[in-house]
Write a protein that binds this DNA or RNA. Structure first.
Length: 588
RNA sequence: GCGGGUGUAGCUCAAUUGGUUAGAGCGCCGGCCUGUCACGCCGGAGGUUGAGAGUUCAAGUCUCUUCACUCGCGCCA
């Protein structure tokens, strides 16, 4: 007989009755009836009830004092349960194990929280004792679910001619983008590796090397602050790159993959079989965000033309260049209590707006603090454009275009929450396309890259030379789902001259480009295929599929929001000898 | 860096307007119990109410400071 087990804890059925078997697992729960003792024995697979009887009083006594979460090995006969004692909740509920031999492999101290209870435990504590937390059914399911999703992804990619390559973890620092994690070099004092923010350069180099379709479940490292859907420090993305492709071909692969994953693993209905495409500009104007939640129709309207001529001071600011008047209709909003509208004023200030004007339409007339400043024409225009009816409320944001859009985009979610429009049972994927190549930096007024500088501008060199930089859009796209950005991607710029020009507009002269990106440009000078790709976030995708509110629920050992690993104690101080070897001195 | 929320027993929570010795369930320890599966019953231990200061006859409760966690903003080309 195997030293530890002949079966797992989810395996034994009626057909095993009278067999002498051995099980190992954790003491999940214990029910001591004095004369008879039941223990639920648990492993990754499930639970089997094992029974101790007074025939062996010594063993019964020992068993009755085994602490929860201890690991034991038991040997005995599989016994049929009488009809009234069958537990239909367990796969093994028709049998139980009559224990004849007990071995305690590892006795557990009292655990800081209970594995068998479903209480939501303080997350700090859960992370500190993650190895116990992961024993809980929900976490075990999530982590295995994640593994299964990744298996599906790998099978799909391989089946479509992609190969998985590993790219370096010790890479180079780059001045663009997120903060790097730096790794000091021992052999080269004063120099540093950087952990890759993404394998971006390497996957492009693979294309130039002649590999046609690359993918990798790739670890990425960014030293930026956390969000509920963004792990600090590190995360995994499905990194994809393809040679000789158009944007549409990248979309086609990702569409198919997402649909496969949702249908196979999700319990959600897909809102769109064909994922809609929306331009960045339209997404901002209609949804107030570049990652629109398309599960519900509640759209922003632009009233800049209609209202900037108004007598009302709030609206006449719309005449200023760059300022937009955006509006959103809240159907049935007239019912909302006064406190809701008052609370929104503070809310608006926290969301980048000076305030939030609104008009209540009730009993055929318009009401609210600003109505007395509005003409009949103004009101007609508002009603026409927003479709506001009796009982509705229209909110207005007057600010720089981006701020006005973002403000009402955030309000759109507040309203959707009140109206319960965000259906948790569906997934609405969409593509956001035509991201601008450049934007004007707020504080400096400089033209800077708004996304990846290596993306191909639409129109190529001609566009760079002839168009207003702020009007140039790139072959740069995002795939979003339910208001979450799953991934950014782009058709890359593979032509050195266009690259120099693009960088020139972005404020880098030739020398700087050569200094920072010379290795990439050199590579492009020896025969580079047109190529493009994308990199959906694996953690986020699994989070959405598993219906979890936080990314940490689908990561085995996540960092907390301060980027610490409380279990192993990272980051930590290191020995002075280590620092000395690296030529590093800590300055207070 | 900034703003919101939370912090009471090992865990999850309660404690009226500021008012008696801060309670309950689970867990833990001891006892009883031969069919439970959230077993049941009896008893017990366990608290610097995150920390510090203040107001008050009286503070878990009010004020200030601070710490921890968390959500959001900034940031994430």
């Amino acid at each position: 007989m195997h030293l530890y087990r002949t079966h797992n804890c989810n395996e034994l059925t009626k057909s095993d009755i009278n067999k002498n078997v051995r099980l190992s697992g954790w003491v999940h729960h214990r029910r001591d009836h004095g004369g008879v003792l039941f223990i639920d024995l648990r492993d990754q697979y499930g639970i089997t009830q094992i029974v101790f009887h007074p025939e062996n009083n010594e063993m019964l006594d020992i068993a009755s004092h085994i602490s929860y979460e201890s690991v034991i090995t038991v040997t005995g006969n599989v016994v049929e349960r009488s009809e009234e004692t069958v537990n239909s909740k367990l796969a093994t509920g028709e049998i139980e194990l009559f224990v004849s031999e007990l071995n305690i492999e590892s006795s557990a101290k009292t655990t800081p929280f209970q594995v068998a209870e479903s209480d939501v435990v303080n997350e700090d504590l859960r992370l500190r004792y993650r190895f116990i937390d992961l024993r809980r059914e929900k976490m075990r399911k999530n982590i295995i679910f994640r593994a299964e999703v990744i298996t599906t992804i790998r099978e799909f990619m391989e089946g479509n001619g992609f190969h998985e390559f590993q790219t370096p973890i010790l890479a180079n620092s780059s001045p663009e983008g997120a903060r790097d994690y730096l790794v000091p070099s021992r052999i080269h004092p004063g120099k540093f590796y950087a952990l890759p923010q993404a394998p971006q350069q390497y996957k492009q180099l693979l294309m130039i090397s002649g590999f046609d379709r690359y993918y990798q479940i790739a670890p990425c490292f960014r030293d930026e602050d956390a969000r509920a859907d963004r792990s600090p420090g590190e995360f995994y993305q499905l990194d994809i790159e393809m040679a000789f492709v158009t944007q549409e071909e990248v979309f086609a692969i990702v569409d198919e993959l997402m649909k496969l994953v949702v249908k196979k693993h999700g319990k959600h209905k897909l809102v769109f079989e064909d994922f809609p495409q929306i331009t960045f500009h339209d997404a901002m104007n209609k949804y107030g965000t570049d990652k629109p939640d398309m599960r519900f129709d509640l759209f922003l309207q632009d009233l800049t033309d209609e209202l900037s001529g108004s007598e009302c001071q709030i609206f006449s600011q719309g005449k200023k260049p760059g300022v937009a008047i955006k509006a959103i209709n809240y159907p049935g909003g007239a019912e909302a209590p006064r406190s809701f509208f008052d609370g929104l004023q503070t809310w608006a200030k926290q969301n980048g707006l000076k305030g939030l004007a609104y008009i209540v339409f009730e009993e055929g007339i318009a009401k609210g603090p600003i109505v007395k400043f509005l003409s009949e024409n103004d009101l007609t225009a508002i009603k026409e454009k927003t479709g506001a009816k009796d009982g509705d409320v229209v909110f207005f944001a007057v600010a720089k275009w981006k701020a006005a859009c973002h403000g009402l985009g955030a309000l759109r979610y507040v309203l959707a929450e009140r109206m319960e429009l965000r259906d948790p049972n569906v997934m609405a994927f969409c593509w956001v396309v035509d991201f601008p190549m450049y934007e004007k930096e707020d504080h400096s007024g400089n033209i800077v890259f708004s996304h990846n500088p290596f993306s191909m501008p639409q129109g190529g060199m001609k566009a760079l030379e002839e168009q207003d930089p702020l009007d140039i859009v790139a072959y740069q796209y995002d795939i979003c789902c339910n208001g979450v950005e799953l991934s950014s991607g782009a058709i890359r710029n593979h032509q050195p001259e266009i690259m120099y020009k693009a960088f020139e507009i972005g404020g880098y002269d030739r020398k700087e480009v050569d200094e920072h990106f010379g290795h990439m440009i050199r590579a492009f000078e020896y025969g580079a295929p047109p190529h493009g790709g994308i990199a959906p976030g694996v953690d986020r995708l699994v989070m959405l599929l598993a219906d979890e509110p936080s990314i940490r629920e689908v990561i085995a050992f996540p960092k907390n929001s301060k980027a610490q690993d409380l279990l192993v104690g990272a980051p930590s101080s290191v020995m002075p000898e280590q620092l000395a070897e690296l030529n590093i001195r800590i300055v207070d």
